[in-house]
Amino acid sequence: MTVNGKTYEHEVEPRLLLVYYLREVLGLTGTNVGCDTTSCGACTVLLNGESVKSCTVLAVQADGADITTIEGLAGPDGKLHPIQEAFREHHALQCGYCTPGMVMAVTSLLRENPHPSEDQVRFGLEGNLCRCTGYHNIVKAVLAAAAAGAGSAPIGAGTAGAVPTGGAVAGGGAR
């Protein structure tokens, strides 16, 4: 399968879930696991451009598919995707655990509906649980990203020179 633009080939046990293939075989640990029941959405990735819960897809089912994980969203130059940028700008994450899945769900949502209403955002994210933010700032970030045209922004290309506004500071100097 192709993951973030790179092609991989592995013999795997049929019971290996896509999420563990990504995490343990490919070492792409950005995609998280939060539940056993397809409820929480922390493991959301794009499969052929659409959001899926990778805990409920067998790796063998994704044979030949094109997968995008959170690691593949920002540009190779380190520029965040506009959705990531909006999450940061609007403080749409705290502990960060649901964030990769949430961001991938938003990516899929905005590709299908580039200019959603607040209600459409809220229902469009019904498959992703967050325990920290109360969703307020996530919804705000999605609406801001949509307004900035994030729905048509290319994946893996970053923001092409866009800079954060307001008090944002570049770089992750901490720890």
């Binding site: 959405g41 659409e50 959001s51 899926v52 819960k53 899929s108 992703n128």
Partner: peptide
């Protein structure tokens, strides 16, 4: 049915 991810599969 379910949520968007479920509807995609």
């Amino acid at each position: 049915v379910g949520d968007p991810q479920v509807r995609h599969r």
